[in-house]
Simulated assay, not measured.
Amino acid sequence: IEKSEKATSVFGKNSAPAYGIYHFTNEGQTSWFDFAKKIYAIGKKCGRVTKDCTITGCTTAEYGAKAPRPAYSVLSKEKIQKELRIKIPEWEQSLKDFMSDRRFEIR
């Protein structure tokens, strides 16, 4: 969000959020492995995934990431929640909503 001296938001005059970088993710935490499993499960349930497959996990070393990755890392949403006064949904519900939305059908 860019800095503006007289910025206005939906909250009124001079109420724009503080400038800077904002992180945003849905609520909750997951790994890439569990995210893939959930995509598959929801996809099967709503008919977007029609073939069976096995999802197996791997370590960062096995994957061959170019940069070292921390064993555990999550983004803090504290700033965006405070500044934008928003309720953030759980990631699983957002994924389900997205995958069930017929606007995104693969044809």
Rank of each mutant, 00 (worst) to 15 (best):
G28I: 12
S9I: 01
T50L: 06
S4K: 04
T50K: 10
A36V: 08
A41S: 10
K66L: 06
Y40W: 06
E2D: 14
A7G: 15
R102W: 09
A16P: 03
Y40G: 00
W32H: 11
K82S: 13
S100H: 07
G43V: 10
P70T: 05
T60W: 07
G20M: 04
R107Y: 11
S4F: 02
R102Q: 15
G47I: 01
I106A: 15
Q93M: 04
Y19F: 08
T60K: 09
I55A: 07
M99V: 07
K13D: 10
P17D: 09
T60R: 08
Q29W: 11
I21E: 12
F11G: 11
K51Y: 12
R103L: 11
A65D: 02
K45Q: 12
G12Q: 07
S73P: 03
E27F: 01
A71F: 09
L84F: 07
D34E: 13
R103C: 04
G28K: 12
S9H: 02
Y40M: 01
K6T: 03
T54S: 15
K82V: 07
K79T: 00
I55M: 05
E62P: 00
E90M: 09
K79L: 04
E5C: 06
G64K: 05
A18G: 13
T60I: 04
E27R: 01
I88C: 03
I80L: 09
Q81Y: 00
I80C: 15
T60P: 08
I1P: 00
A71E: 15
T59I: 05
C46R: 10
K38I: 08
Q81K: 14
L95H: 03
G12P: 01
E92D: 10
L95P: 01
C53M: 07
F33S: 05
Q29I: 13
I21G: 11
C58A: 15
Y72R: 09
K37C: 13
K45D: 10
K77R: 15
S31F: 08
P89Y: 03
Y22T: 06
S31H: 07
C46H: 05
L84P: 00
E83M: 14
G57H: 06
Q29L: 15
K3M: 04
I86R: 10
G20F: 06
E27H: 09
L95I: 06
K37Y: 02
S73W: 06
R102E: 12
G47T: 04
S94P: 07
A41M: 05
E2W: 10
A16C: 07
P17T: 10
D101H: 11
F98M: 15
D97K: 12
I21W: 06
E92H: 02
K87P: 03
E105V: 08
S76F: 04
R107G: 10
K77L: 15
T30H: 12
I39P: 01
A65Q: 07
D34A: 11
E2I: 06
R107S: 05
F98A: 13
K66A: 11
K87I: 09
P17A: 14
A41D: 03
I42Y: 00
A65E: 05
